[in-house]
Design a binder for these strands. Sequence first.
DNA 1: ATAGGCAAAGTTGTCTGACAAGTATAGCCG
DNA 2: CGGCTATACTTGTCAGACAACTTTGCCTAT
Lengths: 237, 237
Amino acid sequence: MQPRARQSLAEQIVRILVGRIADGSHPLGSRLPSEHDMTAEFGVSRTVVREAVAELRATGLVATVQGRGAFVVRQKPPEVFRIEGTGGSPLAEIVSAMELRIALESEAAILAASRRSAEHLASLAAALAEMDAAIAAGEDAVPADMRFHRGIAEATGNPHFVRLFDCLGDGIIPRTRLPSFRAAGAGRADYLRAVLREHEQIFHAIELSDPEAARAALRLHLTGSRLRLLKMMDRAS
Amino acid sequence: MQPRARQSLAEQIVRILVGRIADGSHPLGSRLPSEHDMTAEFGVSRTVVREAVAELRATGLVATVQGRGAFVVRQKPPEVFRIEGTGGSPLAEIVSAMELRIALESEAAILAASRRSAEHLASLAAALAEMDAAIAAGEDAVPADMRFHRGIAEATGNPHFVRLFDCLGDGIIPRTRLPSFRAAGAGRADYLRAVLREHEQIFHAIELSDPEAARAALRLHLTGSRLRLLKMMDRAS
DNA sequence: ATAGGCAAAGTTGTCTGACAAGTATAGCCG
DNA sequence: CGGCTATACTTGTCAGACAACTTTGCCTAT
C-alpha cells in the first residue's frame, strides 16, 4: 500500500479548519461558517466541505446539528498517549516505560492493599494460576501478566488507574517488545518463574492489607524485571 | 446547543464498520468493500458512504487510495485517556484524579531531584515567580501552576512523564474544576499562597538533589491541597 | 511462452442539482 | 404582546456526471 502523493481537497480543508479552531479564529462554542459559505470561500464543492466537516466531527472538534450548523466543541484534538514508537532506542524506551510503571503501579499497590475486596483477591489469584499454567505450557504468559496488573489497578477502586492501564496496553510488559525474548529458550522459563514468585509476593501483601509491603514488593518486582531483562539481553549478544 | 435526537446515516455506517474492523471481519491490512458495494449493502447514497469513510479516516482506522480502495490500517481507535467527565460526583472525580497525581508526581519528583539540570531549575524558578505575580494580581495562577508541574516532569528526563502530563491537561489542577473556587474571594489568595509555599519547598528539595525530600514535599503538597479544597468547599456551603 | 502495450473495467475524488428535514427569523393578526 | 404562519437558512441525503487513478484482461510482437 503506497502513501498518497497528494492531499485530497477535504484533507486540505480539514487542516485549515483545525488551524483556525486552534488559533481561536473559531472559538469554543462558536458556529463554523455554513457549508454554502465555505464552498464559496474555499472554492470547492459542497461534498468536499461535508467530508471535511465529517472528519472534524470524527476527531471530536465539531458537532453538527441539522438546520443549525457545525459548532466547535473542542479546541484541540484529544491527545493520544502512547508509550511505543516514540523514537529513541528500544532499551531507552523500555527503561522509560518502566519508570512510568514504577510510578503508577507502586501507588496502585498501596491503594489496592487498602481497598481490596475478596473479589479482587480472587481475580488476582486466578491471574496467578493462569500465569503458572502458561509458563508450564511454554508460553510467554503476557495475557495473564496483564490481567494481574490490571487486577491491581481495579483493586485501587479508582477508575483512573484502570483506564490509564488500559491506555498503556501491553507495551508496558517489556518482554512483548523484545524479539530476543521469544527465542531465549531455557532462560525464559526461569525468568518467568521469578516474575511469578514476585507476583505472588505482591499478592500476599495485598491480601494482608499491608500497603507498604505491597509497594515495596511491587517496586522490587519492577526493578528486578528490569535488571533481569538487561542480563538476558547481554547473554543474547 | 441541543444534543441530536437521531444519528445520521453516516454515523450509523461508521458504527457498523468500526464494529467489523474491531471484530476482525475486516482485518488489519484488508480492503473495505468499494463505495459502490457499500451503497448497495447499506441502502444509502454514495455521499453517506463517503462521509462515513471520511470519519473512519479521521479516526485513523482507515486510509484511502484513489483508484484502489479504503484499507484498514488500525483495528481499534486510539484510546484517549481523560480524567474529566468520566461520571461520578465532582468531588469523587477530584479525589480520584488527585490519587493519580500523587502516583505520577511523587515519582517524578524523585527522578527530577536526581536528574535536574540548571536549566530545569531556572524553568521551575520562573514558574514560581509567575505564580507569585498571578496571585498578587488576583488571578487563579493556573497556567503558572501547570508550568511548574510540567517543569518537574521535564526534569525527570523521561518523555513519558511529560507526555502523560500533557495528556492529562489542566483538569489535574483541582481548582479549575470547582466553580465555587472562582467566587471564593479572600480565602482564595490564602489558599494560593499556601500552594506557592509548598511549591517552593518542592523546588528546594529538587535544587538540593534530594529525591526523598522532593517526594515527601510533593506528597505533602498534593495531600494538603486536597484537604484545603475540602475545607473551602465546606465553607462555601 | 513471455513481455509489453492498450483498452476496458473498477475505484476513489469532485462537482452539480434536487429534495428532505430541521431551525431561525420576520411579519401578520388577534 | 403572544401566537401562528410563511419564508429563509442550514444540514442530511440522493442521484448523476465527470475526473483521476489503479487494476485487469486481451492482443500482439518477440
